[in-house]
Amino acid sequence: MPISRALPVAPMVLTLLAVGTASLPSEPHPTPASSYLPRLVVEGRAPAAAFLARHHTPGGGQTFGSTGPGIGPGDRFRAGSITKTFVATVVLQLAREGELGLDDSVEEHLPGLVQGHGNDGSAISLRALLTHTSGLYDYMAALPATDPALTGAAGPSAQPVTPAAAVRAAVARPPVAARGSYAYSNTNYALLGLVVQRVTGHPYAAEIRRRVLVPLRLTGTSLPGVRAVLPLPHSRGYHRSPADGTLREVTDVDPRFAGAAGELVSTLADLDAFYAALLGGRLLLPADLATLLDTRASAGVYGMGIYPQKLSCGLTVWGHNGHITGSYVRSAATRDGRHTFTFRVNTDTAPGAALEADLLEAEFCPPARSEGP
């Protein structure tokens, strides 16, 4: 989501850190973003951090940077809420095909599921789910945490649920905002996953594979379902206890609690390739892409599974972040998809918003506007 909650952590020892960047021959100098990697580790309290920047143009190239052990450019990791961009893309494809309408109500597709405690599925459109303007309570906040050591921004990782059960947990609470007001809620995308299955007869994960992963050859990306072990090669993920600063490995996590709101597993390269293809018009027709990027419903904060961030040099980049047990990741791209950038830290303690903004400025703004850390 656009604003992520960071967990308090203890300081860490930095004696073994090293920074490295690797550029293809077509990229004559390392990206300025490489100078921010040590700050990502220190301020994010992470064992390691990495990024991949790509210029998807003739003669363009890519730069990979990492600091700390154990993150390679092709390693799989949990991408959290970046899943939402994939889900929104599929929903807009289905709308173009006439399988559903963005102004259809939730009740039309999932009768009786969103009712009670002030919730009314007949008054909530699919468009409202896509833009987080439904007002629905976030099911992540509704579930009890059975393992407090793993409870973070992504919610209780030791509490797997079915999508319908997640929704029922949310609608047992009153709305958190008036319908039409922006309020980020994972419940919206849990519902969209159910809608995709209802109209296609296939799980949303199967539709993402068929419509996005296979055409784009994103071989490092998957939707694990019940599989807790990451595919190889993968890097490790960690959780740092807010109570005593203890670092605990949480690479193997049951992903069912995240579902259509955040179960995606991917790589730095695949996420760059996905946003390049999406914003470059390879997945949606121009009118549908414009709908995806329309932020008017949320007063400029969020489109449909994607959000903008305006930088000091006047450039607006588009993308999403993912905050899930053991991982924080952020992807951003220019509006035409020709310049993409994804970074990741291997802990669920997110870097501060200011540091993240500085990193994006360093990558996307002219060198004169980008200062070192």
Rank of each mutant, 00 (worst) to 15 (best):
V214T: 14
P163G: 13
L192M: 11
L223P: 00
Y137R: 05
V212W: 00
Y182E: 13
A170Y: 06
T200G: 09
G135A: 10
A123F: 03
T146Y: 10
L192W: 01
D147N: 15
L194Q: 08
Y204C: 05
E207H: 08
A165L: 01
Y182V: 10
R217C: 11
R198V: 06
R210F: 00
T187H: 01
G193Q: 04
A206C: 12
A177C: 06
V161I: 12
H132Y: 09
T131I: 12
P215N: 14
P224S: 15
S181T: 15
L216C: 09
L126T: 12
P156F: 01
T187M: 06
A177I: 01
G116R: 09
V226Y: 02
A166R: 07
R210E: 09
P215F: 09
A172E: 15
L130K: 06
R179Y: 11
A141H: 10
A178S: 13
Q159K: 04
V214K: 10
A141M: 15
V214I: 07
I208T: 06
A165Y: 01
A164S: 13
Q197V: 13
G180F: 12
R179H: 14
Q115Y: 01
M140K: 10
V161G: 07
V226A: 15
P175Y: 02
G220F: 03
R210I: 00
A153H: 09
P224D: 14
G118R: 15
E207M: 13
V195D: 03
Y182G: 07
N186P: 11
R179G: 15
L126H: 08
Y204N: 13
P203S: 08
V195C: 07
P175F: 00
G220Q: 09
R179C: 07
G201I: 11
P144H: 08
P203C: 05
R211K: 11
D120M: 10
L223K: 01
P163H: 06
A123C: 05
A183C: 00
A145Q: 12
Y137M: 02
A166K: 02
T187S: 13
V214H: 02
A178H: 13
P233I: 14
A128Y: 02
P156V: 07
P175W: 01
L150A: 12
P231Q: 10
G121V: 02
P148E: 12
E207P: 10
L232G: 03
V161T: 13
P160Q: 06
A153N: 08
G152A: 15
D138P: 04
S181L: 07
N119A: 14
R168W: 02
T221G: 10
Q159Y: 14
N186D: 15
V195I: 14
A149V: 12
A172L: 08
Q159R: 15
A228H: 03
G220E: 03
L218A: 08
G220S: 10
G180E: 03
D120A: 15
A190N: 10
G193D: 01
T187N: 07
A142N: 04
A165E: 11
A169K: 03
L191N: 04
T151M: 05
G135R: 03
T200D: 03
Q115N: 03
N186E: 15
L143S: 07
R168I: 01
